[in-house]
Design a protein around this nucleic acid. Structure first.
Length: 131
DNA sequence: CGGATTTGACCCGCGC
DNA sequence: GCGCGGGTCAAATCCG
């Protein structure tokens, strides 16, 4: 107790550890930096939609991640807009092809899989690209 | 300290 | 004309 620790009391509580616990909510990293500016549960499809925006100054590209609340493995990523700047350089440092290539390929494969998944229910027809 | 991230509330568009 | 849904912004908070 001691005085009023109002903030200490509210700013705590376990909550749900985000989804980083036993689940593997791994969003397809495309190499760009995104800033999450919103998250809402869409009842129309019963899924959660996260909104990301490119952190670049002249980049108006936006990214939308959508996944079902019970199956985070099934993520649907939609890119809106185009990047007016080249990639921020993944991480050059050492090596490139061969070593982390497998990791990159893994993520890329996931992304492709997600984008190729059109098992979505019938909701708005946001044809972003083709599918 | 800065940057990043989260949650809530507000706003707008469309449908009927 | 009104209501609902979805989308965005802002503020607060936390971590490194």
């Amino acid at each position: 107790m001691s005085s009023s620790s109002r903030e200490a009391m509210e700013g705590y509580g376990e909550e749900q550890d985000m989804e980083q616990r036993g689940h593997r909510l791994v969003l397809p990293e495309d190499g760009y930096q995104w800033k999450k500016y919103g998250q809402k549960f869409i009842r129309n499809i019963g899924k959660v939609r996260s909104y990301f925006k490119c952190q670049r100054s002249n980049c108006t590209a936006k990214k939308r991640a959508e996944w079902s609340t019970s199956e985070p493995d099934n993520i649907r990523v939609v890119y809106e807009g185009v990047h007016s700047h080249a990639l921020p350089a993944p991480e050059s440092g050492s090596s490139r092809p061969g070593t982390d290539s497998s990791l990159n390929a893994n993520q890329y494969d996931l992304l492709t899989q997600v984008l190729g998944d059109r098992s979505t229910p019938s909701y708005h027809d946001h044809d972003h690209g083709d599918n």
